[in-house]
Design a protein around this nucleic acid. Sequence first.
DNA 1: TATATATGCAACCTTTCGGTTTCGCAAACT
DNA 2: AGTTTGCGAAACCGAAAGGTTGCATATATA
Lengths: 106, 106
Amino acid sequence: MRRDIFQAIADPTRRAIITLIALQSMTPNAIADNFHTTRQSVSKHLRILTECQLVKQEQQGREIYYSLEIKKMKEIDKWLEQLRKIWETRYNQLDKVLLTMKKQKK
Amino acid sequence: MRRDIFQAIADPTRRAIITLIALQSMTPNAIADNFHTTRQSVSKHLRILTECQLVKQEQQGREIYYSLEIKKMKEIDKWLEQLRKIWETRYNQLDKVLLTMKKQKK
DNA sequence: TATATATGCAACCTTTCGGTTTCGCAAACT
DNA sequence: AGTTTGCGAAACCGAAAGGTTGCATATATA
């Protein structure tokens, strides 16, 4: 089992679940009502999301409320940040080139 | 074939390829040298990355240079942005609650 | 022209994925 | 106590993923 964030958000249903419970915590049944799939299928997705700590549970009687673990979502940001730095540097280099060309024109 | 960005970045090798060619464009052989896998395997990954337009090719004689399509990477950002809004709102609501509590204390 | 190199593509195989069905368990009704 | 409801877990299945091997093609080199 790989079970990392990137594999977790690869599935469109799981991404939809994430945006759904980002607003408020929900039970598996309530979540399943929003999709054309069974509760068991949603339960499986929630298991995967829980395994990589993207989601946390809160038991209330026989119901279990699932909510988003925002901190974990930011790990995706971290990976993008590393790339952002690279492409910003690239743009800066392009700026330098343009600046040099401008100077030469003068 | 699903072939969307999220599925593309789900694979760790593909993520490594992305960070690799983010710095400079590279040929499949050069990319493969960085991993414990065959050139054909890398070629397959590049095909997937090309299909979802995360990567662009530039033929130079018999060599093909692959480079990152930065614009497309930002689509991941877009999805995160939508979530960012939600959780920022949530924090603001928490701020309001705290503010109300403070006022009541007075 | 013959050979080496760079590459993509198709066939094949094993593993994983996502869904459904069935089951068991615990909490809440009646 | 008996029944309904909410849930997870296991077994099963077809499809897709990721890797390897072998082959075809085009460009460079001898």
